[in-house]
Deep mutational scan, measured.
Amino acid sequence: PKDEAKKKVKEAIKRGDEETAKRIAKKYNLDWDDAKREADEER
């Protein structure tokens, strides 16, 4: 599900692992900028 994928993307971003985050986002066709902004807001 997309929500689960987005959570994984945000967790990867918070760990500083943007490569993984981008790969997950691409795989699930998520909006990378959107997920990154959300992760930054939660930090």
Rank of each mutant, 00 (worst) to 15 (best):
E4N: 09
R43V: 13
P1H: 13
D34C: 11
T20R: 07
L30S: 00
A39F: 11
E38P: 03
I13V: 03
T20W: 10
K14Q: 13
P1T: 14
D33I: 09
G16K: 03
A12M: 12
K14I: 13
A5N: 04
R43S: 13
G16C: 11
E18C: 15
W32M: 04
A5H: 07
A39K: 03
E38C: 09
A5I: 10
K14T: 07
E42S: 08
Y28R: 02
A35W: 05
N29H: 10
I24M: 09
G16L: 02
V9H: 01
K7V: 09
E38R: 03
Y28L: 02
A25C: 14
D31K: 03
A12T: 02
W32A: 02
P1N: 15
K27D: 10
A5C: 07
E11I: 04
R43E: 13
D34E: 15
E19M: 09
D33L: 10
A21F: 00
I13H: 01
A39Q: 04
I13D: 00
D40W: 13
D17E: 05
D33A: 09
K8E: 09
V9P: 00
R37H: 06
T20C: 13
R37E: 06
E42M: 07
K36R: 09
K6E: 04
R15D: 05
R43Q: 14
V9Q: 00
A35P: 02
K2M: 14
P1Q: 14
D34M: 12
W32I: 07
K2S: 11
D3K: 08
A5V: 07
P1F: 14
A12H: 06
K27W: 11
E38A: 08
K7H: 09
A5F: 09
E11K: 03
D33H: 07
D40N: 10
A25V: 03
R37I: 06
K14N: 10
P1S: 15
I13Y: 11
K36W: 12
P1Y: 13
L30A: 01
Y28D: 06
G16E: 02
I24N: 00
D17Y: 05
V9R: 00
I13P: 00
E11M: 11
E42D: 10
K10W: 13
D34A: 13
R15V: 05
A25I: 03
D33R: 04
E41T: 10
N29E: 06
K36F: 09
D40S: 09
R15W: 05
K22P: 00
K14R: 13
A25T: 02
P1C: 15
A35E: 08
D40Y: 13
D40L: 13
P1W: 15
E19N: 06
K8N: 06
K26V: 08
Y28S: 05
T20Y: 12
G16F: 03
E42C: 12
W32L: 08
A21D: 00
A5K: 03
D3G: 09
K6F: 15
V9K: 00
K10N: 06
D17I: 01
I13W: 07
V9M: 13
E19G: 06
I24F: 04
E18W: 15
Y28Q: 01
E42P: 07
K22D: 01
K14F: 13
E38K: 03
A12S: 04
K6N: 04
L30E: 00
E19A: 12
D40C: 12
E38N: 05
L30I: 15
D34G: 06
K8T: 06
W32C: 05
K36N: 05
K2G: 09
E19D: 10
L30C: 13
A39W: 09
V9I: 14
K2P: 10
D34H: 06
